[in-house]
C-alpha cells in the first residue's frame, strides 16, 4: 500500500481509470447490458478488501461491529455478484462446452 500518495496522483489514477471504464464498455451490444451491469457489480465488490483492512485495524467494539458489517456486506456483494453474473452469462455459453453445467442451470432456471 502506498503511504504517501498525494491527492494529485489520486486524481491521475481516477482520470485514467475513468477513461479505461469508458473505452472498455463503449460499443457493447445491448443484450449484454444486464450481464455487464451485474459484472461491474461484482467488480466493485473489491470494497471487501477495504473493509477487511479496516476490520483488521479495529481497536474497540464499535469499530469491530461496523467492520464486521462492512466485511459481511462486501462478501455478499462479491459472491452474489459473481454467481448472478455467471448464471446470466451461462445463457451465452455454447451448449456443447459444459453440458452438465448447462443442465443444472436450466433446472434451476425453470
Amino acid at each position: 500500500m502506498l503511504t504517501s500518495m498525494t491527492f494529485i496522483i489520486a486524481l491521475y489514477i481516477f482520470m485514467l481509470a475513468a477513461f479505461t471504464g469508458y473505452v472498455v464498455i463503449s460499443r457493447v451490444p445491448s443484450i449484454l447490458h444486464t450481464p455487464l451491469m451485474s459484472g461491474s457489480n461484482f467488480i466493485h465488490g473489491i470494497v471487501v478488501v477495504g473493509a477487511l483492512t479496516a476490520l483488521f485495524s479495529a481497536t474497540n467494539v464499535m469499530e469491530q461491529v461496523v467492520g464486521f458489517l462492512g466485511v459481511l456486506l462486501g462478501a455478499g456483494n462479491v459472491m452474489g455478484g459473481y454467481v448472478v453474473t455467471d448464471r446470466m452469462l451461462a445463457m451465452f455459453r455454447p451448449s456443447t462446452k459444459k453440458p452438465a453445467q448447462a443442465a443444472t442451470d436450466k433446472k434451476t432456471a425453470s
Partner: peptide, 28 residues
C-alpha cells in the same frame, strides 16, 4: 463510493476498480 474510499484507505486497487465501474456504469 468504492473509488473514493479507496483513496481514503490509500488502496489504489479499490480506486481503479471503483472508478472503472463508475465510468462504465455511467455509460451503461
Amino acid at each position: 463510493a468504492v473509488g473514493l474510499e479507496g483513496y481514503v484507505m490509500s488502496n489504489p486497487a479499490l480506486m481503479i476498480a471503483g472508478m472503472v465501474v463508475g465510468a462504465a456504469g455511467t455509460l451503461l
